[in-house]
Amino acid sequence: TFELKGKVGKVVKIAEDHYLVEVEGDKWIAYSDEKLSLGDRVMVVDVDGLKLKVKRIP
């Protein structure tokens, strides 16, 4: 999972307290300090167990 840091993915689902992002064909639970929208491109900035911390990228 640490090899996911720096990888780019996209938001595929928005849940009440987390996001579902697809990175390299796999779906992961993710969270972010900013509000994300469906389809946003994101970069993995940290890995916390099986959850990814992501940030939006242009």
Score class of each variant (00 low, 15 high):
Lys35Met: 08
Asp40Gln: 13
Glu22Ser: 05
Lys51Cys: 06
Glu24Lys: 03
Met43Gly: 03
Lys55Asp: 12
Val42Thr: 08
Leu52Ser: 01
Leu20Phe: 12
Glu3Thr: 01
Lys35Leu: 07
Ile14Thr: 12
Gly49Gln: 09
Pro58Asn: 05
Ile14Asp: 04
Asp46Gln: 03
Val54Tyr: 00
Val12Thr: 12
Leu52Gln: 01
Lys7Val: 02
Leu20Tyr: 07
Glu22Val: 06
Gly39Pro: 06
Leu36Ser: 03
Glu24Arg: 02
Arg56His: 05
Leu50His: 08
Arg56Ile: 05
Val54Asp: 00
Gly39Arg: 13
Val21His: 00
Glu24Val: 04
Leu50Ser: 10
Val45Asp: 14
Arg56Ala: 05
Ile29Asp: 06
Lys7Tyr: 03
Leu4Arg: 01
Asp33Leu: 09
Glu3Met: 02
Leu20Cys: 06
Ser37Gln: 13
Asp48Ile: 11
Lys53Asn: 11
Glu16His: 11
Met43Pro: 01
Val54Gly: 01
Asp48Trp: 15
Asp17Met: 11
Val11Thr: 14
Arg41Phe: 10
Val11Lys: 00
Lys27Gln: 09
Glu3Gln: 03
Arg56Val: 06
Val42Cys: 07
Val8Gly: 04
Ile57Tyr: 07
Gly9Asp: 00
Gly49Pro: 10
Gly49Cys: 10
Val42Leu: 04
Val45Gly: 05
Glu34Asn: 05
Ala30Lys: 00
Val44Gln: 00
Val47His: 05
Val11Asp: 00
Asp46Ile: 02
Trp28Asp: 01
Val42Ile: 13
Leu20Met: 09
Asp48Cys: 12
Leu52Ala: 02
Leu36Cys: 08
Val8Asp: 13
Asp40Trp: 12
Ala15His: 08
Lys35Tyr: 10
Thr1Ile: 15
His18Arg: 09
Phe2Glu: 15
Gly9Ala: 05
Leu38Lys: 07
Lys35Gln: 12
Val44Asp: 00
Ala30Met: 08
Lys7Ala: 07
Lys27Tyr: 07
Lys27Pro: 04
Lys7Glu: 04
Glu16Met: 10
Leu20Ser: 07
Phe2Pro: 15
Lys5Asp: 14
Val21Thr: 12
Val12Met: 13
Lys13Gly: 06
Trp28Phe: 08
Tyr31Ala: 09
Tyr19Pro: 04
Ser32Glu: 03
Lys13Gln: 09
Glu24Asn: 02
Gly39Ala: 11
Lys55Arg: 12
His18Gln: 12
Leu38Trp: 07
His18Lys: 12
